[in-house]
Design a binder for these strands. Structure first.
Lengths: 212, 212
DNA sequence: GCCTGTGAAGGATTTCACAGCC
DNA sequence: GGCTGTGAAATCCTTCACAGGC
């Protein structure tokens, strides 16, 4: 059924949802694909086409009801519920992730963190207990976890990903600077600001005086 | 000339460069598009086609020389040099970015940070002085800065982006959870782990028992 | 025999453009 | 008159498949 919805479409839905949340906050009740597109630098046709994969949410002549479109999107994406995360790697990066306040309000709760460094074990980070990495498997056997966050050094990342996958985790957010491999039925996203930087330099290099 | 190179291609080059760096470290001297593709979950044809936009770097029957392909890519991307960054926003997120050690080794140096909070001004963060946000314009007039990092709250982000653009910055890495607008000649990338999470939940939601 | 570089084919995604409805 | 939903067209991107060179 919905198997053939392009991944690019899925990746845009959260952006739409975010904008609708903002509009809701501002007290707007209706928005057209035109107006939403201007907010997001997306063509109106694209928004309408994207939404049409999931149903007919708009009213001709009016546009979309902000509240109801937002709740539809939240339901489609599954962000209308609580998700349970674990964090693997409690170094500087891992600590920043745990203490970054952005996940909680969106329904993503870090229920535990894991690290190989015994000095960290027993602490609490962002409200979650830090456990010994060897406990990972046992923990996952007894506790429901939906998503794993990987924040270990590059060299350790693939084995950690493998462990998560073996334990049944089906979604991974990887902050380690490697291309991690997962089976096709596992979803993975990579966060790497260095890669983002390195693609930007291509464009600003060209704009320099003397560039070809 | 090179204006028509697809952006998707540019975005993959840093990934190739990263893998080649790893191969170099391992002491490999030659790699085929096949082997590189397996490392990166990319088809060999795609790698060859991507590279063909920029020249002919391989040898039939052998593959690519790791060192020379890597330096070509570094040159193409402009990551063969030092880039000067400023960071705007020295809250928790900004501090984590400044202290994250990943930029420096890749040639990205944060030369100054800016914040509106006077309590932070005068401090040093990740080796960079924290300056008053009002000094931003003057600072950019007297100092070369290539890329701006935006790590302010959502509501402040667009005005900060506008200031950076007005001051001549042509590349922006935005960590704020908004779709920021920039003129077409400015490059912007967004880092938002929440959006990444929210697109993954779509897929794991479907895999749940009882999901349609 | 192995592997690149690349036109051509195929597939995916975006945009157009308009019928239909409010 | 304004705006959605959507087939069809256009564009963009990926993959194929093979000539050519090592």
């Amino acid at each position: 059924m919905s198997l053939e919805i392009p991944e690019v479409v899925i990746n845009r839905l959260p952006v739409y949802a975010r904008a609708l949340t903002e509009l809701q906050l501002r007290g707007e009740s209706v928005v057209s694909s035109q107006a939403l597109g201007e907010l997001l630098d997306v063509t109106p046709a694209q928004i309408r086409k994207d939404l049409s994969y999931f149903g007919r949410f708009g009213k001709q002549g009016r546009g979309y009801n902000v509240n109801s479109l937002l709740s539809k999107l939240r339901e489609i994406l599954g962000i209308d519920r609580q998700w349970r995360l674990i964090l693997v790697g409690v170094g500087r990066l891992g600590q920043a992730i745990a203490e970054y306040g952005g996940f909680g309000p969106q329904g993503f709760e870090i229920v535990a963190a894991f690290d190989a460094n015994p000095a960290l074990v027993g602490r609490t980070i962002g409200g979650a207990p830090v456990l010994e990495i060897d406990e990972l498997e046992r923990f996952l056997k007894t506790t429901r976890v939906d998503i794993g966050i990987v924040a270990v050094p590059a060299g350790d990342a693939q084995p950690v990903v493998d462990k998560l996958v073996a334990a049944g985790i089906r979604a991974i957010l990887n902050y380690a600077p490697i291309t991690a491999h997962v089976p096709r039925d596992v979803t993975i996203r990579h966060i790497d600001p260095v890669l983002a930087m390195q693609s930007m330099t291509f464009y600003i290099k060209r704009a320099e005086p003397g560039a070809k």
